[in-house]
Every structure is written in structure tokens, then in C-alpha cells.
Nucleic acid binder design. Sequence first.
DNA 1: GCTATGATGAGGCACCTT
DNA 2: AAGGTGCCTCATCATAGC
Length: 585
Amino acid sequence: MAQDDSAEWNTDDDLYFEIDNFQSSPKSSSPVVTSSDHMFATLVDMGFSDDVIARAIQENGPNAETSVIIDTISKYSMNCEPSSSKSKTIYHFLAMGFDEEKIIKAIHKHGEENMEEIANALLSSEADMKEEDNIDWSDSDDEMNDDEKDPDSFDSCNPLSSLVKMGFSELEVSLAIERCGDSVSIADLADFICAAQIAREFDEFHIEPEEQKPRQNIRKSQKEPRPSTNDQPLRLPNPMIGFGVPNESVFITHRSLPALARAPPYFYYENVALAPTGVWETISRHLYDVAPEFVDSKYICAAARKRGYVHNLPISNRYQIQPAPKLTIQEALPVTRKWWPTWDTRTKLNCILTVHASAQLTKRIRLALEAHTGEPSEATKRFVIEQCKKWNLVWVGKNKAAPLDGDEIESLLGFPRNHTRGGGITTTERLKSLGNSFQVDTVAYHLSVLKPLFPDGINVLSLFTGIGGGEVALHRLQIPMKTVVSVEISEVNRNILRDFWEQTNQRGVLIEFADVQDLTKDKIVELMKRFGGFDLVIGGSPCNNLAGGNRVSRSGLEGEQSSLFFEYCRILDVVRETTKEMRRS
DNA sequence: GCTATGATGAGGCACCTT
DNA sequence: AAGGTGCCTCATCATAGC
């Protein structure tokens, strides 16, 4: 936790690059996925069609590395394989996500047998439609990423010239070296770049013409589903690592956003991953068709937290805040190590919820265990393990299981100690607020890309702020918050954010609203004119009607609380529109 | 008033066997 | 392919006890 709160706002990027190099150092020289099922799912998530993946796996064997499979798929699209029928050619490019009309046009122009030329024609057609991959919507000065522009930074790298001669761009090579380290062989670097290229290409190809039209017209004209479009039910990725997490070796460093999403401000929306069927499709559709990034925080800390994030942030050069969280329960909560029974094999906690076990339950567990001398019976073990998993209990003494306390939850979720303690909050309220919060390290990992973009600070509109997970993430990233306009219905939560603001000696302005309805269009415009607009709109709307634990009113996005998602959309729309107007004038 | 407690399953995925 | 099993899930409510 950053404790030097009195320090100057540090715009020195040394820390950033040091940490980035740390997190991106190669675990292996090329991406490896342990099981072919996982590899399959990963490739599907990258946008490849099932058929193409199956074919590539069949060709290379089930134990082939992901990079080899991607290479093979790449060859499918580039080789001049004569196809027996026209429809097969069309299907081939449809599977890659191209628009059918364009495919037909390209086939007519170049001839069915010239697959390479067809591919090139489709590629350049898509390239004309899209903007640069790195979102650069600034029309002037302050948001440029110098690393990507400074040719001097490449001079000392030996593999660079070799790889550039092989036809890769300097940017690609430098990114690969940054990700894999400079001790990796040129072949492995080339592999990495290829994988990134293919992932990027396939992703970009999935920009559909519909995405450029107004939202109301979306999807009406869609005839038949195509792979990886949001017409198909969203699949949760396995492993749930989004575009990559610090401790896994598979990274996707580029994606192409739908054209509508490529507009300031940056936005970041969060909710539970395991929402009822169709919810994430709706969320995505209302957020400019940006595909959700599903991440389980168990890959970043010691507790599971399966969440979907819809955002338009860049995804390359992410880094983790330090110190990185411990990955196992016993490391994260050392006090439990001594008492942890060997027959309790858990290393990760389940999702931290808003309710916790009663004293009566832990008493029953103690009595059940004390009935045995030495090793408990299998039935007792089963009972105890079941309860431990159900209630997320940890071992704090002999035969003594206990629910997590507030301090431990704060720590697991990446908050400063005592962040939610005191100030009139009751234990029940504290646990509820924490249970509804972000996992700070996860969110900070995603937000870390903002650090070099806003060296002078950032204006934030924080909706459904809760206990301020987003603000804590930005603070831990040492991204100065010039302005935070926060909306939070709970008074105790607003107090927590205000306390945090004062305790960390924030120099920016904090403005708090209670009711999201109070943030009218006029009010938003006024605030934006006063502070020069918002750079980031962040928030996770209420999950009450989406969460699996709700037996009473799991009614989806139309539910009483969860429908506030549409307020997020309303406000984001106003901010985007006002931003556009402010930039015009 | 407040707090702690226990009861209230469905939904959906992963994985396995058949 | 189909069916069964195991597992987990940012929760809500009524009520007893203080």
C-alpha cells in the first residue's frame, strides 16, 4: 500500500517501467496452455472459429503449444489453398469475421483461387475503416505515449534490427521485447509478435458495419449468426483471465474497439460475471458493443471474484501495483498457516460476499472436530469443508474456523487497512460495503494504462462509487486525481470516501452526490465546463438482481436496483456528447 | 431501535460417465 | 451426444433476542 501520502504527486515513470518489466518478464519463452480444452477456449476467445481451431489442433496434435496452433491458423488465411467450391472460400473468410458482401466482392475481383489477394483486399478494406489500434483521440498534445514514438529507445536492442528486417514494425518488436524480456530468442519473439498480430487481426475483423450505425439500428438486419459476434450468447472464458493477468503467460495485447466506442472519455464498467443469461449481451450492446473482459480475481489475489468489465481502455502495457497480492490464503493470511488442517486443501477463498457465518456455525464446527481425538472422520471432514467453502472460513486456532473479518477482507480486496473501519459504520454495514466492492488490484491492473496518459492528473466521474475501489486503485497507481465527482447512495460509503480523500492528502476536488438521478444533464454539463470535462467514467452498477446469491429478486437488468445500469449509460452518453461539443468549440 | 441468525434454491458452468 | 453430478454465487427476508 502506498503510504507516502504526503509525497509530491510523482510523475516520474521509473516506478511504472520497473514494475511493468517485472510483471511482463517471461514465465516461458512462448505461450503455453496446460490443457487442450483451455487452449481451445482461449483461441475461441481470441476470435477464431471452432472449425479452424479444430483443424489446426488436428494438424499439430493435441499437445501442441498455443503459438504453434496460432501459426497454423495464420497459414490457413495466408496460403493459397485451392478450395473446391466457392461457398467454401466464402465460409473460410466468414469464419475469420469478414463481412460477407466484401468477401464476395473480393472474390469477384481477384478470383476464387487467389486467397492471398482476397485476404489482402479484405485486410486493407478493414484497415481503411478503422483507426489506429492505440486509441489516440486527443486532438492536440497531452495524451501521447512517448515510448511508442521515440526511435531512440530501440537503439540498444539487438533483436530489433533483425526482426524489423523480417518485416515486423518497430512498435511490434519493442512491445514483444518489453513483454518477453530481451533475453528471449529471436524466434520466440517472432512467435510472440505473430500471435499478437493474429489476435489483433481477427479481433479487428470483427468490427461490423452495424457497429458504425446508431445504436437503435443494431442487429435488426443481422441474418445469420457469425462466430464471435455478440449475436451469439457470450461464453465465459476458461481460464477467466480476460486479456491476460500478471501471473499467466497468455497475453492479448491488442484489440480493436467498435468505432462507436472510440471516443472520449475512457469508461470502465463492472458487474458480476455470472449474471442471468442475456444480461452481458445487453450490457455490451448498451456500451457501444464493446465485448466484456471477464476476469476472476483469483488469478491476481487469494480470493475468487468473477467479474465482467466493459471498457474502452488500451490493453497493452498494463502493469500490476506493488506489492503484488499474495496468491494463496495461507500467504495472504499468515496467521492461518499454523492452524490449517492438511485435509483442507483450499488455497483460494471463494468470492467475498456481503454476509458471513454466524458464531453458532463456527461453534458447531468446533464441536464436531473436538468429538474426535486426532484425525476427524471422513463425514466430519466433509461437513466441515462444505461449511468452510460455503462461508469462506479460515483457520485461526485449533479446531477454530472463523469468517473473514473486516481487516482481512480489506487486505484481500486491496484496500488500505482501516479503510472501512470506524466512523460510525456497523460491522454489518462494513461487511456489506466490502462485499459489494471492487478487487482493487484487478481494477488497478486495468487502469494502469492511464498512468502514462495522464501525468498531470485525471478528472474522474465515479458512479456507484461504493467505498471507492476505483479511487483507491488510481491512488495506488499514483495517478493524481484532479477531480472526482462521485455518486453513492449510501451515507456510510460517502463518509468512507471522504475520509480516504482527507487521509491521503488528496489535492484534487471531491464532489459527492447521493442520488444518481440528481446528476441531470444540465448538472453534468455544468460540472464538465467547470473542470474541463471528464477523462474517465468508472463504476459498477448494483448487482442485487443479477447475483446468484439472490433467491428473492434475481430479476436481471430490469430489477429494481440493477436497472440503474441504464443510468450509467444515460450519464455516459451525456458525458460523451458534451465532450464532443467541448472539443468542437 | 438495532443486530445476529437461519432459512430461503435456482441458474449455469465444468466435468464426468454412459 | 446426452444426462448426471458437483460446485459456486457483489443476496433477501422474517424473526428472536438484546
